[in-house]
Design a protein around this nucleic acid. Structure first.
Lengths: 228, 228
DNA sequence: GCAATTGTGAAGATTTTGTTAAAATTTCCA
DNA sequence: TGGAAATTTTAACAAAATCTTCACAATTGC
């Protein structure tokens, strides 16, 4: 999923440079000419993954906005990169003191900006919990990451081959696979086995599927498939 | 608890400036004149919370060191701040590409350095808190900060390799790791060992797990994993 | 009904893993 | 720094798990 970035700066040119370049990197970029506008947008439930923030602006200035942001638990973990014409060390230190995560000075290099943005997002993405994928049909659940099958909640062990066969079925409901198709996707293109071998795997799979054994259907003369 | 910082730079003066100023802030600072020395220290179990890294050095240079660090799961989350006389945008971008988290150019302002260090530690501390937590499953308790394992209350010594393997299992319950996955997270990306080597580590681990040896399950043709 | 196709149990072949001991490497300590 | 101890890695073989085949029974489709 695309990472969302807010660029808050009262100069249209800067907004454009940031937007164009970061979108080229595959980010979704929203630009705002003031912190107040950005804040309004966030209150509507539009939460960015990173904020690029000018300091001197009409209305709420960057420092103030950052400080406010970091005091709200929901927003505190969003990285804030200051981007300002203020080059004094004092200004930078203040930015960090108020909770900022980075500080770049104008004029800035686009490539450095992109690199820094990427670095911050890299660091935060581990925080975002990864959800495990599941292939499900009724009480049958297959967890690709875990090579595991659960039938009505209780787990069943599969062999590697059984796992791959069941997976191509669940990934392609309705599709019928010939025995060649099946063995190809499980063992690679140039593996040859006797047809009866696949039948045996199917049989073993059906045994393990218990009450759901009929989700694997036989199409005489054609092959096997999963059909609801 | 004090945050530990490694400052790696071949100039004694720089080392001193960093050490003195950051210690004033309450950090524990270790200085090294080469990345190789720092790495040796880390292998002994001395893990910093942040690394300040020069680029041009004798032996392994900063870029190379950073890249290697980020490829080892154990070290990947440690923030790396480059501190270099190389001011070209290209150099900065490269630093970030290799997994760096920040880049300051020499000469640098001490106050800005302190502010940036603080910002990085602020960001990682929540993550870090989780990392030093005890990993527990039934009577098995793993203490990440001391390579120690306790089984039903009595402590068992683990070797470093055993510790890391057990840890990735306990951190990812249900997930299955191939032998390559395992050795990669323990030794870094481009380490090659024979498959049977991992089996031996697993066997030794199981012996030490005593009554809980079966929490490490074998998935034939796939790898190993921890499953409740 | 009959030929073709599929289901099934068990035996055999193959692959994968477990285990031991010894070699190579690293770490530790005097 | 040298050498002992600890650790990691490897090789060789045993054991286990998995896959494949075969023979024949059961089923399907015309």
């Amino acid at each position: 999923m695309k990472n969302k970035i807010f660029a808050i700066d009262d100069e249209r040119d800067i907004q454009e440079i940031i937007k164009v370049n970061l979108e080229k990197e595959g980010y979704e970029v929203n630009t705002f000419s003031s912190a107040d506008l950005a804040e309004k947008h966030m209150k509507k439930g539009n939460i960015p993954d990173l904020i690029i923030l000018d300091i001197m602006m009409q209305g709420t200035d960057g420092y103030e906005f950052c400080k406010r942001l970091k005091s709200v638990k929901e927003y505190a973990s969003i990285p804030v990169m200051f981007l300002s014409a203020k080059t004094e060390e004092f200004d930078k230190v203040l930015g960090f003191e108020l909770g900022g995560d980075d500080y770049m000075t104008k004029p800035f290099g686009v490539r450095e900006l992109k690199a820094r943005v990427k670095a911050h997002l890299r660091r935060t993405e581990t925080l975002h919990a990864k959800e495990t994928q599941v292939l499900r049909y009724k009480g049958v659940e297959l967890y690709p990451e875990q090579y595991a099958l659960s039938i009505d909640g209780s787990s069943v062990d599969l062999t590697k081959t059984e796992f791959f066969i069941l997976r191509i079925f669940l990934e392609n409901p309705g599709k019928i696979f010939s025995r060649d198709n099946i063995i190809d996707s499980v063992r690679g293109q140039d593996a040859y086995v006797v047809d009866r071998t696949i039948d045996v795997h199917i049989m073993n799979l059906r045994k393990k599927l218990g009450p759901y054994k009929n989700i694997i259907r036989t199409f005489s003369g054609v092959g096997y498939g999963f059909k609801e």
